[in-house]
């Protein structure tokens, strides 16, 4: 304060400087404050832009009528009942869970083992593995989906759970990999050495010492893999069939017809699943880390 006092110009200078500071500072902030409030309002609009639609959809899922109007006219659980009564949607929900479960296991295991091994390589081979691991994340989903469809079609393996899990894991594995790698970078390698030194095999050292100390990272990796699988639909659109299509794919197909109120219900359930996942993840791993590690 006493430093900024003399710098601000136009103030009535008194002997003490500190006493003079608030007046000119306050006047200057008058202009800046408007800018700051404009900035805040802008960010608020972006926030609303991102989240308001989701809120609207959740609200419409409780509508009494079949038309999607907001605010909904009358509240009911009618569409939820219809959802539960639909074997197509039940099947899709089951498919989503199977795909997400398979993806979680595959992506977490492959991502974790690779994260454990990759730092031993060093140099250009480490860079090559990192590149291979991350590359699928940057290739357009339509391209990945077509390549899997065309390739697996040669063996009549398209439209199987395997195809769906493979597609989802293409994106889930690199994310799990980088989350576990970030967790391992915070792990003291001496702890593992101490375990080996005291007679633990590498396998036991992992389960006794490494895993417990990076468990929030492992949990976050599994959670992210699960959520990625749950929400993915572009690749799934290509590689799934009537028996394996997941909730987002069925929702997509329904949308191509008309604005189906059942899609609001499904969307609400998916959003609820994500809210639970994010809340659990934030509780275990911390929101900050969830946001920056992926």
């Amino acid at each position: 304060m006493s430093e900024s006092g003399p710098r601000t110009d136009g103030g009535t200078e008194t002997g003490t400087g500190t006493g003079a500071a608030p007046a000119p500072t306050g006047r200057r902030l008058g202009g800046a404050a408007v800018g700051r409030w404009l900035f805040r309002a802008g960010v608020g609009v972006v926030f609303a832009f991102l989240l308001a639609p989701i809120a609207v959809v959740v609200a419409t899922s409780f509508a009494e009528t079949g038309s999607l109007t907001f605010p909904p006219k009358g509240l009911s659980l009618r569409w939820y009942g219809e959802f539960l009564g639909s074997s197509r949607w039940r099947r899709a929900a089951l498919n989503s869970l199977v795909a997400a479960g398979g993806t979680t296991v595959l992506a977490t295991v492959a991502g974790t083992t690779a994260a454990l091994g990759v730092s031993d390589l060093g140099g250009s081979r480490e860079a090559a593995v990192l590149g291979l691991a991350v590359l699928p994340l940057l290739v357009p989903g339509v391209v990945l989906g077509s390549s899997l469809l065309v390739f697996l079609g040669e063996f009549d393996l398209q439209q199987t759970y395997m195809a769906v899990v493979a597609a989802h894991s293409l994106w889930a594995t690199p994310l799990a990999f980088s989350v576990v790698r970030a967790a391992l970078s915070r792990f003291d390698p001496r702890l593992r050495e101490a375990a080996l030194d005291l007679g633990a095999s590498p396998f036991r050292a992992f389960f006794e010492v490494v895993a417990p100390n990076i468990r929030s990272g492992l949990f976050a990796a599994a959670l992210i893999a699960f959520v990625v699988s749950l929400q993915e639909f572009i690749m799934t659109l290509f590689v799934s069939g009537p028996d394996t299509r997941t909730v987002p794919v069925l929702a997509w197909n329904s949308l191509r017809g008309s604005l189906d109120p059942l899609v609001s219900v499904v969307s609400t359930l998916l959003v609820a699943a994500v809210v639970v996942a994010v809340a659990v993840g934030a509780a275990v791993a911390g929101l900050e880390r969830l946001a920056t590690d992926t």
Binding site: V43, F47, L50, L51, A52, P53, I54, V56, V57, T60, L68, F70, V227, L230, Q231, E232, F233, I234, P248, A251, W252, L255, L259, V263, S264, V266, S267, L270, V271, V274, V275, A277, V278, A282, L287, E288, L290, A291
Partner: peptide
């Protein structure tokens, strides 16, 4: 926390839901 949670929420919400919601809005 709210700003971050909003962004993580949006990131983890399936595209279909977000686009469907945008369609409605």
């Amino acid at each position: 926390t709210v700003l971050l949670a909003g962004i993580v929420m949006s990131m983890f919400t399936t595209l279909v839901v977000k686009l469907f919601a945008a369609l409605v809005v």
